[in-house]
């Protein structure tokens, strides 16, 4: 067996910190950020029965972070009586979106085709976003399972973005940018983002310019949203571990710098 190297010890430290804090199972109180509050307020203030497009623009790799975010938003929108149309512009988001929409709709005994519909995947996202601006039916002649578009009560009321209150892009990459630069800029559809923390700063200029109406980000955003809808989920459960992991990284940075400055003083550099 090989001897453990320095990196193995930092790995082990993270593993221990996260495991212990998760086993403690303590719920932390937190202040809701203005970003998450804006997202919540928008969905809350929409008239009942408003149609929202939920776009699952993410891969399976970010599922642990995306799932609590998506569940919180879906539960809120369904509870408010909004009609949701699910689409996916990344292949891997397709099954995840289908599963999450079904799960949250079943919790409230909602009916497929009347309260929500799932249209599935389109491969070229720019073309798909632009095409839906002209006609959603022509872009998606059939739903995810192959049933004709016109078969569903909800879909018959929706021709294009004019009949949609907003698009909520649940994303782990830059796909929300395309919703903004193609969907919003050209067709005027309102775009909201529910994104992973890593993508938050990418979208800040769009949020500041008003091209993106609201944005919530990361597991912390999910925890804040869960607090607003008064239903705990993966976000709230993970907050102690998340905060501890942040502190662990801060500790590593500080230690690394101490080692660096001490060795530089001794003339060794690093």
């Amino acid at each position: 067996m090989k001897r453990l190297e320095a990196r193995h010890w930092t790995f082990l430290g993270l593993f221990v910190v996260v495991t212990i804090t998760m086993l403690l199972n303590i719920k932390l109180e937190m202040k809701v950020s203005p970003y998450t509050q804006d997202m919540y307020t928008y969905i809350e203030s929409l008239p009942e029965g408003s149609v929202l497009i939920i776009s699952f623009d993410h891969e399976a790799s970010s599922l642990p972070e995306i799932r609590p975010i998506a569940l919180a938003v879906l539960r809120h929108a369904f509870k408010k009586g909004h009609k949701l149309i699910g689409v996916s512009l990344l292949a891997e988001g397709t099954l995840i979106g289908y599963r999450l929409m079904r799960q949250t709709a079943d919790e409230l005994d909602l009916e497929y085709g009347r309260d929500y519909a799932y249209l599935g995947f389109r491969p070229q996202y720019i073309a798909a976003i632009l095409a839906m601006g002209e006609s959603i039916q022509q872009t998606y002649p059939r739903d995810y399972l192959g049933a004709p578009y016109e078969q569903f009560e909800l879909l018959n009321t929706v021709e294009n973005y004019n009949d949609v209150a907003a698009v909520i892009s649940i994303a782990d990459g830059s796909l929300t940018t395309h919703w903004i630069e193609y969907g919003q800029a050209r067709y005027g559809v309102k775009v909201l983002g529910a994104v992973t923390a890593a993508m938050v700063t990418t979208y800040d200029p769009y949020l500041a310019s008003g091209q993106m109406y609201a944005m919530m980000g990361g597991l912390r955003g999910a925890a804040e949203y869960e607090k607003l809808i008064e239903r705990d989920g993966g976000g709230a459960r993970g907050m102690l571990a998340q905060s501890s992991a942040h502190l662990y990284v801060i500790l590593l940075v500080v230690l690394g710098n101490i080692v660096y400055f001490v060795s530089r003083k001794q003339g060794g550099g690093s």
Partner: peptide, 18 residues
């Protein structure tokens, strides 16, 4: 797939120190 992505947490921690 998500575990492969989770490995990055460890490399980020290691990079933070080094």
């Amino acid at each position: 797939q998500s575990t492969v992505f989770a490995l990055l947490a460890f490399f980020v921690a290691s990079a933070s120190f080094r």
